[in-house]
Computed example of a mutant assay.
Amino acid sequence: MLVLTRKTGEGIVIGNDIIIKVFEIEGDRVKIGIEAPKATKVLRLELYEDISQENKKAIDVTRDAVDKLFELF
């Protein structure tokens, strides 16, 4: 993992088309702006983790259903 220190008004560039800018730092909170192509999904980490967890649960349910279906034969 790359760890950078940035001040208000500074930013970073990821690849050729993603820009992250620091707008405000107040206490332990940082307000950032993200410029990315519309086709690029930008999610908060905790939301991404929740979605991933739900997707894993859905896969497990599907596997259980298939296993139960094969038990019938």
Score class of each variant (00 low, 15 high):
I51P: 08
K68H: 04
I18V: 15
D50S: 10
I14Q: 06
E24T: 05
E26I: 01
I34N: 05
I32Q: 03
K21Q: 14
V42H: 07
I25T: 08
D60G: 02
I12G: 05
K38V: 12
A65V: 13
T62K: 11
A36Y: 07
T40K: 07
L4S: 14
E26D: 11
I59E: 11
L45T: 07
A65D: 02
F70Q: 11
N16T: 14
K38I: 12
V13Y: 09
R63M: 09
I18A: 07
Q53I: 03
V61Q: 14
I19D: 06
I32H: 01
G11M: 11
G9F: 01
L47G: 01
M1N: 09
V30L: 09
I51E: 14
K56Q: 13
V42Y: 13
S52T: 13
D64I: 09
D64A: 14
M1S: 10
P37S: 08
L45S: 06
M1A: 09
D64P: 00
N55Q: 07
D17M: 06
E10K: 06
E35G: 00
L72S: 11
L69I: 12
G11V: 09
K38F: 09
A36K: 02
A39Y: 01
V42T: 14
L47Q: 15
G33N: 07
K38C: 10
I12S: 10
M1P: 04
I20Q: 02
R6D: 00
D17I: 01
G33F: 03
R6S: 03
D60P: 00
V13L: 13
L47E: 15
V30C: 02
G33S: 10
K56S: 05
V66T: 12
I20P: 00
G15K: 10
P37W: 12
M1R: 10
T5R: 14
I14V: 15
D28S: 11
E54R: 12
E10F: 01
K31P: 03
E49H: 08
L2Y: 05
K7D: 15
T62G: 09
V30W: 02
L45R: 13
D50N: 13
T62I: 07
I34K: 10
E71V: 06
V42L: 06
V30P: 00
V3T: 13
I14P: 01
R63N: 14
Y48E: 15
T8K: 15
Y48Q: 09
E71S: 12
L43S: 04
L47Y: 12
S52M: 12
P37E: 15
R29N: 11
P37N: 12
L45P: 02
V13W: 09
R6C: 00
L4Q: 13
I51F: 15
I12E: 01
K31C: 02
D64G: 14
Q53R: 15
I20R: 05
L69T: 06
L2W: 02
E71K: 13
V61A: 04
A58G: 05
E54N: 11
G33A: 10
K57D: 12
I32A: 01
A39N: 12
I51V: 10
Q53K: 14
E24L: 06
L2R: 15
G15C: 06
M1E: 13
R44N: 00
E24F: 01
K31E: 07
E10R: 10
L2S: 05
F23E: 12
D67S: 11
L2G: 06
